[in-house]
Amino acid sequence: MSDDGTNQGWGNGRPNGQQPPQPQWSGQQGWPQQAPGGQQAPGGTQAPGWPQQQQAPAWQQGPGWQQQPGWQPPRPIPLDEAGVPPLWAPWYGAGIGDAIGRFFRKYARFDGRASRSEFWWWFLTNAIIAAILGAAVAVIVTTTGTREMSTDVYGRTTSQLHTDSIWWLIPIWLWAAWFLGTAVGNIALMVRRLHDVNLSGFFAFFFVNTLGWIVLWVMAMLSPNPNGQRFDRPQG
């Protein structure tokens, strides 16, 4: 069976050369262009150019959807001639030197926001300093200490490294001084990073235990949220 008009009872012997009836909405190549009454293409197939009607999302329907609760248009951040944002604004794309300098310049500021680059460059700096001081302790104890063998009541032998030197305390004191000296700044930076993802800074109190630190690190990985600009203080 073919579609050349010889089927459905319209054979070669049709009277007076009468053609089979064609739908009024048939277009080129048999595809409908404008079906009456909203009819669809045969078999549910839609050809190129067939009109499509898409309904806007519910939050875009009707005027004034931009004024939905909590929605704020992004505020442009002014930059100076060197491309540096003011202190009250986050610095997206900051380098490690920029992040360290901004950490100390905004040491005790709990308002505003901090970008992921500001936060994680400073986190890396802290990790490097802790690793250097820890390695210094290990080197001092290893080079100045002696191993003492001991046997317990069950006959098990253990080895302990013992040193009479006090030099290994110097890196410990330095690390303690660094930790205490940057404690307020670390908390303030975490609060600003939470603000950048539009979360309350009170989540920073999660640092009281190990699980809380993990939760905070996950939060610090989140992308910026424009609604977080509600924490900005441009006058500051």
Rank of each mutant, 00 (worst) to 15 (best):
M149V: 15
I214P: 07
G30K: 02
I140W: 07
T146Q: 14
T158N: 13
L211S: 13
F203L: 14
W31C: 09
P51K: 07
G44C: 06
G145K: 01
F231Q: 02
L87R: 07
V208P: 01
Q28K: 14
P57A: 05
Q39T: 08
F202S: 13
P74A: 13
V141Q: 10
Q8I: 11
L87D: 11
Q68T: 14
F203Y: 15
P36S: 03
L79S: 10
W120C: 08
Q235R: 13
R102C: 06
M149C: 10
I100P: 02
S165R: 10
G185T: 04
W65E: 05
P32T: 11
F206K: 07
M221P: 07
G38K: 01
F103L: 09
R193F: 03
T125G: 10
A136H: 03
V208I: 15
A177E: 00
P85W: 02
V153I: 00
A176P: 04
I96Q: 13
S159L: 04
F123W: 15
M221T: 15
T125Q: 08
G201F: 00
W59I: 03
A138F: 09
T158W: 10
L169M: 11
V191M: 04
F203K: 09
R193Y: 02
G83I: 04
R230G: 09
G49L: 05
P226R: 03
G97I: 12
Q66F: 13
E81G: 12
A220L: 11
T163I: 01
P15R: 07
F119T: 11
Q72T: 05
W71E: 02
Q46A: 14
A130D: 12
P226G: 01
L169E: 08
G134P: 03
P32L: 05
T157L: 02
S115F: 10
I128M: 00
P42K: 03
W88L: 09
Q235V: 03
S26G: 00
W175L: 12
G43S: 04
A82H: 10
F206Y: 12
T45C: 05
P20G: 06
G155K: 10
S117I: 08
Q235D: 14
